[in-house]
Design a binder for these strands. Structure first.
Lengths: 141, 141
DNA sequence: GGCAAAAGTAACCATCACTGTTACGTTCGG
DNA sequence: CCGAACGTAACAGTGATGGTTACTTTTGCC
């Protein structure tokens, strides 16, 4: 495991919600989303909870409740999704502080941090180039 | 945890080996590398074992043995290191097959795979821009 | 040939993140 | 007030990781 499938689940949910919206169903329950993603409704609620906290979806409670997109699918990028559900950085430094008596141990951390940030930025930029609407369009093509 | 600190450990080891080489010590033992990285010698041997399998370092066994760079530090990129030690993809698809009766479930996987590959490629390209020699130079600057 | 040093590696443990599941509290429309 | 659905806590199972010990294998050197 270890690799992030959260983005996949969240993107799937959003694409499905957008398709349902176009078909006239503005609101979907976690059960309905879970049926498409083929997972447990709690997983969906947790994922959509992250998206809600990031302002990408709205959740209504009570009777007849469910989730709806908080803004147009053309304005939700895969980067938005990734930032909402992916807390972990792609690359990490040492768990334990390296030996500071060694020149490499003393100086390597800021250098690697900088390089990791650069690589992560290009990764994010790539994700920012696709929206949920793009994804749905390619799915339906 | 979960985030990869393997690249960090391997890059640290390589930079330290290159610095030692410039100081006239062509070969370092796993104990010596572990002392700088501040971890266990077995961890270093596992990491350098990966690098050896990738052709980045050479290992000699027996008395007076140890590790040395298999090629110039200017020709070992951070991407080489990442490929050698990072088996996991950055993003993964669903664990379970999605519901194929849903249009989204049926079509989303190739789309996401494609987008994930694109983003991963830019990430790799960024890592490919730095070599162990670059890193050591920035450490010593 | 034997010794000693060090790589290679297996076995095991603790920790942690993640998914999945159940269960329960909370909210809110009708 | 009732019921539907979100929110969330608690727990189990799985798997990756890092750390540690211990053993085998290799090999230079005396």
């Amino acid at each position: 495991m270890a690799a992030n499938s959260r983005v996949t689940i969240a993107a799937h949910a959003l694409a499905w919600m957008e398709l349902a919206r176009r078909r006239g169903r503005e609101v979907l329950t976690s059960e309905e989303v879970a049926a498409s993603v083929n997972t447990n409704a709690v997983i969906v609620r947790r994922s959509l909870g992250d998206l809600q906290r990031a302002g990408l979806v709205r959740a209504r409670r009570g009777n007849g409740a469910g989730y709806s997109l908080a803004r147009s699918a053309t304005e939700i990028t895969l980067l938005d999704v990734w930032l909402a559900v992916s807390p972990e950085p792609l690359l990490a430094l040492h768990h334990c502080e390296p030996n500071l008596e060694c020149p490499v141990g003393r100086g390597i951390r800021p250098v690697l941090t900088d390089l990791y940030d650069e690589a992560t930025d290009t990764f994010r930029a790539a994700l920012a180039r696709s929206t949920v609407a793009d994804i749905l369009q390619r799915i339906l093509a």
